[in-house]
Design a protein around this nucleic acid. Structure first.
Lengths: 172, 172
DNA sequence: CTGAATCATTTTAAGCTTAAAACAGTTGGT
DNA sequence: ACCAACTGTTTTAAGCTTAAAATGATTCAG
């Protein structure tokens, strides 16, 4: 059918005049998701098999490790990008396991602070070192420059996505 | 202790002699995960609010859309990268909703084939078009060249990760 | 000081997810 | 034909996840 079009319009123009499809972006998104899933699933599996710990628990402990003075549940849910209600049970299980400790805030009785116990801190240090090596292994096919390029491009994507999600209305 | 070392060794050398840390890879992984989570959570939320459908259901329908002749449960679980047992309930709910149909394979009585119903196909087409626009919106801050670069770099990462996960032992 | 709005957390209901075990059907070697 | 190994699916138990509603605590304008 397209062969019958007058040859005045070249392929370039046809493309630019279409309502515009976004197949390239879609394929890129699927590839990004594939990479994330591959790595995440393998990390989950290794954490379970070698340390008998789940990925969400590891993530929570990682956040506490980065914040030695502890975090509130709200801070945790925001940094882990999970819902608030999620944390109640997760924290409960880690407390039972002796890895973390709940502390009531002195000033605000609504607030619950959470801190790693010494045992939790030691357990996390052991796991984190392995974890870092695993990640390095997954990225082994990329050289330093490529890692840097990816870092920059994903930085742009992060900003672009945030902008699309939280549109700043025109300030009148 | 290290301060007692003779000053023959400069910082550069010290770095290269360390067991090697992999902070750059780790930070890149966290950034990649952040991007994936940002996009995925927003897509999940829009699918729920605008089409009253969950992301896993959308994903399953997308796979069936790409395979008009239908897929077995094993094919689905492998393409969606989720566990086998996961699909049983997911398929059941979509069948109840009239979006898909189960068909027993003629040749192998173990196999269950799944196909979109006409209603499911129409519903998916409606959603997919919006979905594609949402994704394009998230990538709006990147130009064509950057999208292409990301595609290439993530292709490398995918290959590298697969290699790390399924090591091909030395063939003796 | 009081009540409305806000905030931090918990609860609830539904659904998703996995790993591992169980089941059922098929295949290949003898 | 037989049985062992394998394959495709389902079941089970435990845990994760979300959205939405509920609870309890704080803040602040009036």
């Amino acid at each position: 059918m397209d062969e019958a079009l007058p040859p005045m319009v070249d392929a370039e123009t046809v493309v630019s005049e279409r309502p515009r499809d976004h197949k390239a972006e879609l394929r890129l998104w699927l590839r990004l998701l594939t990479c994330a899933t591959l790595v995440e699933d393998e990390v989950r599996s290794r954490l379970r098999n070698r340390f008998d710990v789940t990925l969400p628990r590891f993530d929570l402990m990682a956040q506490l490790h980065k914040a030695p003075d502890g975090l509130t549940l709200s801070q945790l849910s925001s940094r882990m990008m999970v819902s608030n209600g999620n944390l109640t049970a997760l924290v409960e299980r880690l407390v039972e396991a002796g890895q973390i400790e709940r502390r009531n805030s002195g000033s605000d009785r609504r607030v619950v602070n959470v801190v790693l116990t010494p045992a939790g801190s030691a357990a996390f240090a052991r796991m984190a070192s392995q974890h870092e090596d695993w990640i390095a292994g997954f990225f082994d096919g990329l050289d330093e420059a490529e890692i840097e390029q990816l870092m920059v491009l994903l930085g742009k994507l992060k900003a672009s996505t945030r902008a699309a999600i939280h549109p700043t209305g025109p300030t009148p």
